[in-house]
Computed example of a mutant assay.
Amino acid sequence: MQTENRVFDDFVKFMNGAAGTLAGMGREAEAATRQRAREWIGGLDFVSREEFEAVKAMAAAARDEADALKARLDALEKAAKPKAAPKA
């Protein structure tokens, strides 16, 4: 709908521009906040999910290997145990 009033048209254009500017400022503020949060969290010695999962998998593998070695040691100790001589 076109109006004959130029002042109203100019006001609408101004408000549309202001809304776009405010939206852009909001995006910039959000990006800056995210960057600061990353910097702050980066200084707290956190690890990424990938690093955590890798260490978790390595710990599970080490635990499995330790269990296997313990079972092997138990079997060797059982085999090396002197058998009791029968009582006469």
Rank of each mutant, 00 (worst) to 15 (best):
N5R: 08
N5V: 02
R6S: 07
R6V: 06
V7T: 01
V7E: 05
F8M: 05
F8V: 12
F8W: 05
D10G: 09
D10R: 15
F11L: 02
V12N: 06
K13Y: 01
K13F: 00
K13Q: 08
F14C: 01
M15R: 14
M15E: 09
M15Y: 05
M15Q: 10
N16K: 12
N16E: 09
G17R: 14
A18I: 03
A18D: 10
T21C: 03
L22R: 14
L22N: 13
A23H: 14
G24N: 09
G24R: 10
G24D: 08
G24C: 04
M25I: 08
M25R: 13
M25G: 08
M25Y: 11
M25C: 09
R27D: 08
R27H: 11
R27P: 04
R27Y: 09
A29Q: 11
A29S: 04
A29W: 13
A29E: 05
A29L: 06
A31G: 10
A31T: 11
A32H: 12
A32Y: 08
T33C: 11
R34D: 06
Q35T: 07
Q35I: 01
R36S: 10
A37Q: 15
E39D: 12
W40S: 15
I41W: 10
G42I: 04
G42F: 06
G43W: 03
G43R: 15
G43N: 14
G43A: 02
L44V: 04
F46A: 01
V47D: 02
S48Y: 03
S48A: 02
S48R: 04
R49N: 05
E51W: 08
E51I: 02
F52V: 00
F52C: 00
F52Q: 06
F52S: 01
E53K: 08
A54E: 14
K56G: 02
K56Y: 03
K56F: 10
A57K: 13
A57V: 07
A57H: 04
A57R: 13
M58I: 03
A59E: 09
A59I: 10
A59Q: 12
A60Y: 14
A61D: 05
A62V: 03
R63T: 04
R63Q: 09
R63E: 08
D64G: 11
D64A: 15
E65Y: 07
A66Q: 03
D67P: 01
D67F: 11
A68H: 03
L69Y: 00
L69I: 04
L69F: 01
L69G: 03
